[in-house]
């Protein structure tokens, strides 16, 4: 029997060892993760959910999508994704948050505008 979220037998943060932050910076909801290497190479004990994330991210998938598809809390996904990235199992795509608090760069917006118009 597999554990569905409603029958999960441990509290979500057990999966993260009680941590609310991964080994790195906070990852935005929209940041896209892509699996680039095996999740077990580091020798660290990895929870099964991390393997689920690594499998899901064989195709690019955002933090919000991972949380939704695996029915895990966003906070847990952030920690596990950060850990996987620190182990070089995942690569995390760029977002606008690193640049400025609210205004996205002109170059990125020009790319977006051209793209939206072409859809």
């Amino acid at each position: 029997m597999t554990a569905t979220p409603s029958t999960r037998l441990c509290r979500p943060y057990v999966l993260t060892g009680g941590r609310t932050r991964g080994r790195g910076v906070d990852i935005p909801l929209e940041a896209v993760a892509l699996t680039v290497g095996p999740a077990w190479e580091s020798g660290r004990r990895v929870p099964p959910e991390a393997f689920d994330i690594a499998e899901l991210c064989n195709r690019p998938c955002s933090v919000a999508e991972i949380a939704s598809r695996l029915e895990l809390p966003v906070g847990v996904v952030r920690v596990l994704v950060a850990d996987l990235a620190a182990d070089h199992a995942l690569r995390i795509g760029a977002t606008a948050q690193a640049d400025a608090p609210t205004i996205v760069s002109v170059a990125l917006l020009e790319r977006l505008l051209a793209g939206v118009r072409a859809l």
Partner: peptide
């Protein structure tokens, strides 16, 4: 893999 994930905007 060497490819980069896409840049994400929202």
């Amino acid at each position: 893999r060497s490819e980069l994930p896409p840049v994400a905007l929202k």
